[in-house]
Design a protein around this nucleic acid. Sequence first.
RNA 1: GGGCGAUUAACUCAGCGGUUAGAGUGCCUGCCUUACACGUAGGAGGUCGGGGGUUCGAAUCCCUCAUCGCCCA
Length: 945
Amino acid sequence: MSPSELRSRMNINEIPKQYDPKDAQDRWYGFWLRNGYFHADPSSEKPPYCIVIPPPNVTGALHLGHALNNTLQDVLIRWRRMQGWDCLWMPGTDHAGIATQAVVERRLLEEEKLTRHDVGREALVERIWAWKDEYEKRILDQLRLMGCSCDWERTRFTLDEMCSKAVRRTFFNLFKAGKIFRGKRLVNWDTQLRTAVADDEIYYEEANGHLWTIKYPVADSADVLHVATTRPETMLGDTAVAVHPDDPRYQRLIGKMVELPLTGRRIPIIADAILVDPAFGTGCVKVTPAHDPNDYQTGLRNDLPMINLLNPDGTYNENAGEKYAGLDRMVVRKRVVEDLKSAGLLERVDSYLVRLNHSDRSKTPIEPYLSDQWFVRMADDADGAPGFAQQAMDAVTAGKVRITPERYAKSYADWLAEKRDWCISRQLWWGHRIPIWFCTTCSEEDLQLAFGGRSDVSWREAEAGGWLICGERDLAADALGDGHLLLQETDVLDTWFSSALWPHSTLGWPDDTPELRKYYPTSVLSTARDIITLWVARMVIFGQFNMREAPFRDVYIHPVIQDGNGKRMSKSAGNGVDPVDIVEVYGADALRYTLALGATETQDLRMPVEKLKLADGRTINSSERFEQGRNFGNKIWNVARLTMMNLEGYEPAPVDVAKLPVEDRWILAELDETIRATTADLDAFRFSEAARRLREFAWGEFCDWYVEFIKTRLRDPETRPDAQRTAAAVLDALCRLLHPIMPFLTEQIWQLLGRLAPRRGAPRPVEAAASVCIAPWPVPAGLEDAEARAAVAQWKEKIQAIRNLRAERNVPKEAKIAPVIVAEGIVADRLRSGESFIKSLTGAGSIEITADGSNRPAESAVTVLADAEIVLPLEGLIDKEAELAKLKKSLADLDRQIAPLRAKLANESFTERAPAEVVATARDKLSELEAQHASVAALVEAGAR
RNA sequence: GGGCGAUUAACUCAGCGGUUAGAGUGCCUGCCUUACACGUAGGAGGUCGGGGGUUCGAAUCCCUCAUCGCCCA
């Protein structure tokens, strides 16, 4: 079918009045995939542009925050793709060690009453893989539903073969470089899951508890110290009592010993200004280095012994003494309190509000626990060479990595400045198992003999004796021959270890792949601020370690979505919004537009949440905000319909812009400016500005004005062709500009438009691309036109003034008014060029533009503007008193503006110090207002007579 | 305790040194005007959190207080 045949068949009734998002989504996503538009090609000549997705946890479904982040990434990717870059958006998911294992374990317990120890390591891991398969699919489907243009053929998982290889190589290299060590550290211990958990995986909860005050007798003396604690059972592990060095009450006791009750041990009284606040309580503090973070630091400072009382399951061990060993810590607490009481050493018990750490995963109280852990060294080298933390800080200060908004560079630097070692071991089963084997029986000769020639095995003496052997590939238990058993470390790596490799592991590192060569370093990383430290900093560290180059040029930090009360959205709080629900109700384009509009530079984005009942009976969480996106999309849809139904007889041809009517020159100039500004917005990650600007152009200029201007031209065969060409050109550019934000809607229009006007564009028509997805991003065509813009501004202002007069005087809709515009000079000229528009858009029967305002009909409504007077004769409709009142009000308004302006100009320090330009503007403004004032005053005078 | 941010129209937010402070939603009043009622035309509504300062000029810069949120201890 030829375009002209199609055109004649294009009946407005065939295109629905309302944009149907579902239809477009179903139709075009598959089309894009089939055509391979999302597939990056390392062999292409185009320059690379790459974003790696922050891999969502396979724990559950995506929430609105993911929807925001992925919308913004897709905007960048689609925009750059249109600009001609070879774009790779790398998708994938994160195994999320503890989070996923905890979910599956909980389910196991609920559904089968089994613990992980019942099913065993292998079987549990198998179950988690099954869970992963289900949720990974769900997550990736959600991304597709939103229109994300990821390169699905390259989808990765942090625990897949490719990532595992990268993890192994990295660990091995770190081990060889001496960046990895094993040591005893105080960690947050989850006694239920029996693992260390990271600081960000715990939360505080306040509870009513007690404060016990215990008496500690001073050895060889009658003195007694009073020590208060919320955890009396830990006293069994005390190795000192601390006082403030300047506290006069205890000066004489410093250096003496106390008899630690119930244990028979003697421990020293030490002075420590950091731990002890002399004003708090008795000024004496018990020190339990193995079971409290502050005490631990005190222990290190004062070289105290550390006594670990705890077994991994939360029971006390033999260090607590025979009497308490094997009992749960809560039972020990009761016993200790009873025993102290019967020994007469319990001074008092008070009610106390205790702040207790809980594990995010098991919801049970955390125990500070001294255990063997693996670490990556962050500190500088002994010779002063910058260590990992310093290198990561340098990447930002040297400008190799730019963080937007800039203020987040500070939290990045502050955190890294502490240079704290990174604890990378987790006592879990789901994750990358640490590739270390222990051997306590062998000698270095044995190791040399077995592994001497191998570059993939490295060993080092362990702190506690024996050997730590790191293998890039698994080592057999009998690799050292008979008599020496190799035992693999049972811990797995912290999830962030594999996440930290994401930008290069997904591209094939350690292999030298075409992808790695072309797309590393990646272009932008977009993420939420709460993982700047945990993730972003560590990617920089590992990227620089493995690749000798930071993994991305830009880091963009998006705002956090909260509910209408400023609370974090969460499933448990019941205020979470599911993006899938929003897509269902409003469509993917509406979701994306609204989120882009909300992506301002602030750190929080509030979204009032309300319940919405769907036709199928389900009640979902929704937000009125999404109507903005839906309504805007519908507006675009309808202006496209209007344009297309007027394309009958369309013939593409080059246009001489200089000879086009004012309104065409105006809209093309506005378009140029919009292209320029929108491109700059996206370049600076100003997503909200871009969305706002495009709406202003599309709705506020193109729909509200341009299309109205050309309606009459479209009916006249003489003027029709150029109007069609300009309208088609603008619609074409608009589709391209909006595509990154609203991909489905714009593709739907693009395809329809392609059938009617396959060649389009001004000043020169070109063949439209097969998909807007691969159409070139618009560039300004050098069509600025200040005169056209000034003229149209004149038309708009006068049309609005006349409409206002009509509305205020209640002129019936059907009345054909005959307004007179009194103006002269260039103003009159500009108005004459738009006379017909002023007439049609105000519903006037006739219109007069004259320099002579003397013969005004007695019964008329009048508006005095800065450069013109509008007279609307309204015989029989005029209330003289009301007219006079209106004029007087306008006079008062003018006075209110004139007075401060006069005062300002009378002020010498203003006229002398302010820039000449500002002073001149003020003078012009004043004389304009004074002229206006004089005109209104004359009218008042005449009316009063 | 330290840091970051917010406080502008009823709500959600722009504006970040120079005209009478803007938008969307909501509200009020007309209109189903053959592109769109998810629309259109018009309108009301703000001493820019309080106080001080810098400046010819402050919503905008500085200080301080208050309230709220987040991050790190």
